[in-house]
């Protein structure tokens, strides 16, 4: 597919033209950090960011989502019978998604589309989404995408990729969807040799900058129960306060909880993100809790990401190396350190 070059000064207008065909999400400065927001007339996109505070997972998988509903109305023949909440899934595009977050969607997809089950909400939203990535010119010291099968300009999981060349973007369609998105954008010119060469140079330079690693090469061959009963968990979990920051910020955490809410005659079945750090996550109706202790919940998160998921899906670890949990954990629990403990055990 041909590459196109857009001058930065024309960039937002070019994007806006594609709004006829897509709902577009762009990074927007939200106080001290960036987050993805829908591109409206009043939105001021800001592509000068390391990564968004919240991962774009909520665009495909909202934190709270109504999945079923019914009316609890004595007059209604369908009283008490839950029906799927009507929804439409118009084409949408996440512009500026980092390659690690795009990788995350493919990690999560293993869960939502299996041989037996297919999650209709996640899948329909995912399939209507175009991932227009923005390569990382300046990866952070907490980034370790290269050690989990990604990279600052990793193209495998994206539909299109943008290269930031200072005063202009080079946009490259990688899939049909991505090519279509670029074709819907206004303006732009065919890429010249110089831009293509510059883009190539960025990739090599950025990859050198990812110095941090996630050590997990030896975890695969270890026995599950041995690792599960390893002596280091309690000590490693000491500082954990069991909040949900790591799981909610994580682009690859997919667990949810289902709640029924009644307001007046309206009954809704809502699914919400849940976190394995919460005791309620595993609390049983009897009152028994198989993960009663802090370290057990802590262990679950890391075992799931680094042992259960790889063993089950043979798809690498359940981590895309974005580093959000490392940066924003209030007590500095670092997945790289914990993976090291597991690897060396």
């Amino acid at each position: 597919m041909t590459d196109k070059v857009f001058l930065k000064k024309d960039w937002v207008e070019a994007l806006k033209a594609a709004r006829d065909s897509f709902r577009i999400f762009v990074p927007v400065r939200d106080g001290d950090f960036h987050n993805f927001h829908s591109l409206e007339d009043w939105t001021i996109p800001n592509f000068d960011f390391f990564n968004t505070r919240l991962s774009p997972k909520s665009i495909v998988y909202p934190q709270s989502e109504r999945i079923f509903e019914c009316l609890n109305d004595p007059e209604d023949p369908g009283k008490g019978i839950l029906k799927e909440a009507p929804k439409d899934y118009p084409p949408q595009a996440i512009v500026g998604i980092r390659p690690c977050d795009a990788h995350a969607f493919h990690i999560v997809k293993k869960n939502f589309e299996g041989p037996e089950y297919r999650d209709p909400w996640w899948m329909q939203r995912f399939e209507s989404t175009v991932l227009v990535g923005l390569g990382c010119n300046a990866p952070c010291p907490t980034c370790f995408c290269t050690s989990v099968g990604g990279g600052p300009f990793h193209e495998e999981y994206l539909d299109a990729i943008l290269f930031d060349l200072g005063d202009r973007y080079l946009a490259r369609g990688l899939t049909e969807k991505g090519g279509e998105f670029i074709s819907k954008m206004n303006g732009g010119s065919s890429a010249d040799e110089k831009s293509i060469k510059e883009a190539k140079g960025l990739v090599a330079e950025a990859e050198k900058k990812v110095v941090s690693r996630l050590p997990f090469d030896k975890i695969g061959e270890k026995e599950v129960t041995g690792l599960f009963n390893a002596p280091f968990w309690e000590e490693a979990a000491f500082s954990c306060i069991n909040c949900g920051t790591c799981t909610f910020l994580c682009p690859t955490c997919w667990c949810f909880d289902i709640q029924d809410e009644v307001s007046g005659r309206q009954v809704d079945r809502i699914r919400n993100w849940d976190t394995c750090m919460s005791p309620l996550f595993t609390l049983e109706g009897s009152g028994h809790n198989p993960r009663d202790k802090k370290f057990q919940r802590f262990r679950q998160r890391f075992m799931h990401k680094l042992k259960y998921y790889p063993d089950k899906y043979k798809n690498g670890v359940q981590c895309s190396g974005c580093g959000r949990c490392v940066r924003y954990c209030p007590v500095n629990i670092d997945i790289r350190t914990i993976a090291g403990l597991m690897n060396e055990f």
Partner: peptide, 23 residues
Amino acid sequence: SCIRCYACRNACPLCYCTTCFVD
């Protein structure tokens, strides 16, 4: 912008209830 992660609650030394009201 609250994401209900309860980090504020859990970071607080005063919050030691066995079952929090939100649960």
